[in-house]
Measured scan of single mutants.
Amino acid sequence: ELKPWIEKTVKRVLGFSEPTVVTAALNCVGKGMDKKKAADHLKPFLDDSTLRFVDKLFEAVEEGRSSR
């Protein structure tokens, strides 16, 4: 259920769609990584945008959990 949101956010942050980043982000969430681990995992794909993306990712995960 997070996938469409992650795809949109990747496109907004990077300026283009990147399926590799979407898959990696879903893996981070699925494995229950904390922000630091997720950022380390995604840094090779996102460079300077990593922290901004990870912040948005974790906000969305929290919103998703609290709306259930």
Rank of each mutant, 00 (worst) to 15 (best):
K3P: 01
S67K: 13
R65T: 12
R52V: 14
A39W: 04
T50E: 05
S67Q: 14
E63D: 11
L46W: 04
S49M: 12
E59W: 04
E18D: 15
E63Q: 10
S67A: 12
L2Y: 08
K11P: 00
A24M: 08
E7A: 11
P19S: 06
D34V: 04
I6L: 05
G15Q: 02
V29C: 07
V54I: 01
F16G: 06
E18K: 09
L14W: 00
V54P: 06
S66P: 09
R68K: 10
K35I: 00
S49Q: 14
A39R: 06
F45Y: 13
R65L: 10
A60Q: 13
C28K: 01
R68I: 11
R52F: 15
S66H: 11
E62P: 08
V61N: 06
S17G: 05
K56E: 15
K35W: 01
H41D: 06
K36C: 05
K37G: 12
L26C: 04
R52N: 14
K56P: 04
L2N: 01
C28V: 15
A60D: 07
E63N: 11
M33H: 05
E59K: 06
K56L: 15
E1T: 04
L26F: 05
V29T: 03
L57S: 07
S17V: 14
S49P: 01
E18P: 09
C28Q: 00
A38F: 08
V54S: 04
V10H: 00
S67F: 05
L51F: 13
V13H: 11
L2W: 08
V21M: 01
H41E: 11
T20H: 14
L57V: 06
S67I: 09
A38Y: 05
D47C: 12
N27V: 05
S17L: 13
F16I: 11
D40H: 09
P19I: 01
K36T: 10
C28R: 00
S17M: 10
E59V: 06
L57T: 09
K3F: 02
V29N: 03
D48E: 14
G32T: 03
T23P: 03
K37D: 13
S17H: 11
P19R: 06
E59P: 08
L2V: 00
S66K: 12
L46R: 02
K43N: 01
W5E: 14
F45E: 05
V29A: 06
K56Y: 11
V29R: 01
V10G: 00
L42E: 02
L2D: 02
L57C: 12
D48K: 08
R12V: 09
R65E: 13
A25T: 14
P4C: 14
A39S: 08
V29W: 01
E1L: 02
W5A: 13
W5Y: 14
G64R: 13
V13A: 04
G64P: 09
E62Q: 10
V13L: 14
R68F: 03
N27A: 09
E63Y: 09
S66Q: 09
F16Q: 12
N27M: 09
P19A: 07
V29P: 01
V22W: 02
E59T: 10
M33Q: 05
G64A: 14
L46F: 12
K37E: 15
G15C: 01
H41R: 08
D55K: 02
L46M: 08
D40T: 09
T50L: 02
L51M: 12
S67E: 08
K3N: 02
F58G: 07
M33F: 11
L57F: 09
V21Y: 00
A25F: 02
S49R: 13
V22I: 09
D34Y: 01
E63T: 09
P44C: 06
E7I: 09
E63P: 05
L51I: 11
A24P: 02
K3R: 10
P4R: 15
T50Y: 02
L51R: 10
K43Q: 08
K8F: 00
S66E: 12
L42D: 02
K43T: 07
S67V: 14
S49C: 09
R52K: 14
D34S: 11
T23M: 11
L14V: 00
T9D: 01
V61C: 06
L14G: 02
A39N: 11
H41Y: 15
D34K: 07
T23L: 10
R68G: 12
T50S: 05
L46Q: 04
K11D: 01
P4Q: 15
S66W: 07
N27C: 09
V22F: 01
W5H: 12
D48W: 04
L2M: 14
A39L: 07
S67G: 14
L42Q: 07
G30Y: 15
D55I: 00
G32S: 07
T9C: 03
R65D: 11
K37F: 08
C28W: 04
V54D: 06
A38K: 02
K56D: 14
K36P: 08
T9K: 01
E18T: 03
R68D: 13
F53T: 06
M33K: 05
L2G: 00
D55L: 00
D40W: 08
G64F: 15
F16T: 12
L14P: 01
G15P: 09
V13R: 03
L57M: 10
R65Y: 10
K36A: 11
V29D: 01
K37N: 08
D40S: 10
L42V: 01
R52H: 14
K37M: 13
L57N: 12
E59C: 05
D48P: 02
D40C: 01
M33R: 04
E18I: 06
G32A: 07
V61R: 06
F45G: 06
I6T: 01
G32E: 07
D47V: 10
A39V: 14
K11T: 11
D48Y: 04
D48L: 04
A39D: 02
T50C: 07
F58L: 05
F53K: 09
V29F: 05
D55A: 01
L42N: 01
P4F: 15
F45Q: 02
A25G: 00
N27W: 03
K8Q: 05
G30Q: 15
R65V: 08
K56Q: 11
E63G: 10
R68V: 13
A60T: 09
F58P: 10
T20V: 08
A38P: 00
E7M: 07
R12K: 14
T9H: 09
K43V: 02
L57P: 07
A38T: 11
L26A: 06
V21R: 02
A39Y: 13
E63V: 09
P19D: 10
R68Y: 12
E63C: 08
V13T: 08
T9P: 04
E62F: 08
V22C: 05
G30E: 15
V54K: 07
T9F: 09
T9E: 11
N27T: 14
S49G: 09
E62L: 06
E1A: 00
A38W: 11
K36V: 10
V21G: 00
K56R: 08
C28T: 04
T9L: 15
K3V: 03
K37L: 08
P44S: 07
T50W: 02
L42H: 08
A25C: 12
K35E: 02
A60C: 08
A38I: 09
R12C: 02
A38L: 03
P4M: 15
K56W: 08
L46Y: 04
C28N: 02
L57G: 07
K56M: 15
E59Q: 09
V21S: 01
T9I: 08
M33D: 01
F58K: 02
V22T: 05
V21W: 06
A39C: 12
L14E: 00
F16Y: 14
F53W: 00
P4K: 15
K35F: 09
K3M: 06
M33W: 14
D55N: 06
V22D: 00
V21L: 14
D40G: 08
V54M: 03
S67R: 12
E1V: 01
E63R: 12
F53E: 04
V13G: 01
T20G: 10
V61L: 10
T20Q: 12
D40E: 15
V21A: 05
W5C: 11
L46I: 03
K8I: 00
F16D: 07
L14H: 01
V13W: 11
I6P: 00
A60E: 12
E59H: 06
H41C: 10
T9A: 12
D34T: 12
D55F: 00
S66Y: 07
F53S: 05
K8V: 00
F58Y: 14
L46E: 04
T20L: 07
G64S: 13
E18F: 04
R52E: 15
T23W: 03
K56I: 11
D48I: 06
F53G: 05
S49Y: 12
L26I: 10
H41K: 05
D48C: 06
F16M: 07
G30I: 15
A60P: 06
S66M: 12
K56H: 11
A60Y: 11
R65K: 15
E62W: 02
V10I: 07
L2F: 10
G64W: 15
N27L: 05
S67H: 11
V54W: 01
T50A: 13
T9S: 03
C28D: 02
P4H: 14
I6S: 01
A60L: 12
E7Q: 05
H41L: 11
D34M: 01
R65I: 12
D47K: 15
A39E: 08
